[in-house]
Structures are given as structure tokens and as C-alpha cells.
Amino acid sequence: MRSDAGKLSLILLMAPFALWILLLIVLPQLGIGYVSLREKVGPGQFTFGFGNYLDFLGEPIYWNTLLRTAWMSILVTILALLVGFPVAYYIAKMARQRSRAALFLLCLIPLWVSDLVRAFGWIVLLRETGLVSGALQWAGLISGPVELLYNDVTVVIGLVYTVVLFMIVPLVSTLDGMDDALLEAGYNLGGSRLTVFRRIIVPYAMPGIVAGCIITFMLTAGSYLTPILLGGKNSSWFTEQIYNQFITRYNWEAGATFGVLLLGFTSLVIWLGLKLTGQSLATTVAKD
């Protein structure tokens, strides 16, 4: 009797989970895989094969865009880690109890402001008639207005800005748990600052670093607004190609192929990151 009730409640709890994962995650992913293997030979007529992938390889614009998105995402991830780590360490270990909570909240507030608002803020700051250009002219550093938008440096700055909070939050929650006695022991044993950092702090923070890097990387590679608004029409970002194929050209076969490639690429990098650091998805990303 007791175990029947247990079984029934297990089935009832399993049902929404199974429906969600199956209908909204697994089958749709298989769906784009299927469409990417489909080639149109006539109206309503299809054959199957790897033709769409060969088209992708045959067109340098396409794979160059993917490569560009890839290396810029990796660059942004590394920069976000370098920029964010000291801030996270400060919040978790150096700030006083009260200012710690305030600083952490300050970190979180831009998190809740839409990407669009943030990108729009950068546009107001950086365009030709913007604040930075105006301030530089006022200070006499430049003679005429200068356009600071629509270049790669701005795109990278904007992307780091958009994702750095997702790096800081997991880092703070990991570093928060570190016992200060560990550091003292390291110094007492004669370790220099660098040694303590390298041998104690970094290994301890590793789950946070991995979680932050995974989320940051995924968000960057999949971002759409920031590269397009700050990089202009020719920002050549891969998600833009996907959008163009799907919505503008209505070529779903090519769009699905690009989607599979982007998903395959991000999954590969995330898997490599987890393998190299010996972490698992459940212990890193799921922790926050």
C-alpha cells in the first residue's frame, strides 16, 4: 500500500519533468538535426545527406564567421575571468561584512537590466556624438568627434561587460567558503603571495572558475544583441547568420545546419573544459 502510493507519486512527479525535457529539449534538438540533413531538390521534395554541411565548408564567409565567433568568445571568457577574479576575491575575502553584501548586490543589479538597455547605454556613451567623444574633445585630446562604435575592441568591451557578472557570482560563492586559515598556513610555511595564490586560492576556486567560464562562454557565443548593436551590421557574428538564414532568407535547412554547428561547438568547448579540470556539470553550473 505504502509503496504503491510511493510509485504513484513518483510517476506523477516524473511526468512534468519527462514532458518538459522530451518535448522542449530533446525532440526539438533532434528536429534541427533532422532538418540540417535535409536537402531541398524541388518544391516540397527532399533528399537526405550532408550537403548542407558541405555548403557550409565550401563558403569561407560562413566558417570564418564561426571561427571568429569562437576565438572572440574564448578571448571574452579569459578577459572576464581576469577582470572578474580580483573583484570576486575582494567581495568574498577583503571587504568588511556589511559592505560585502552591498557590493554583491551592486554586482547583481546590472544582471537584472536587460542586455538591450546595457548595449543602448554603451551606444549613448561611445558613438560619434556620444559622451566619451565629447569628453575627449573637451579635454583637448582629440580635435574632432570620433566614432568609437563598430569596431572589434568595442564589441569585446561590451561583451565582457555583459557577461562578467556571470563570472563574478559563482566565484564569490566559491571563495566565500574558503577558510582564511588555509591562507595563513600557506604564508606560515613560507609561501610567497604568488605561491599561495597559485597553489591554494586557484585550486580552491576551481569549481567557481569552471562554472563561471562555462556560463560566460556559452552566453558570449550565443549572444546576439551586443555584437550587432556595438559592432554594426557587419559584425559577422554567427548567431546573426543563423537569424538571417531562418528569418530573412527563410532557408531553414541552412539555418538548422548552422544551429547544429554552433551547439556542437559550444558543447565541445564546455565538455573539454569540464574534462581538463575534472569537474562535472552537476557540481559546477548547478551549484548557484
Binding site: 529539449i25 525532440l27 526539438p28 534538438q29 551547439l263 564546455i270 556539470l281 553550473v285
Partner: peptide
């Protein structure tokens, strides 16, 4: 599998659900 949706880029979730 429950955590996986967090690491799928949003654009991909969008197109896959559109296609399906």
C-alpha cells in the same frame, strides 16, 4: 539532463522549438 538547458545558447533553443 535537467541542467543542460542552461548551457544551450538561447538562439538554438529558439530555432529548435520553432522547427519542432
Amino acid at each position: 539532463l535537467m541542467v543542460v538547458p542552461l548551457v544551450i545558447p538561447g538562439v538554438i533553443l529558439g530555432i529548435s522549438i520553432l522547427v519542432f
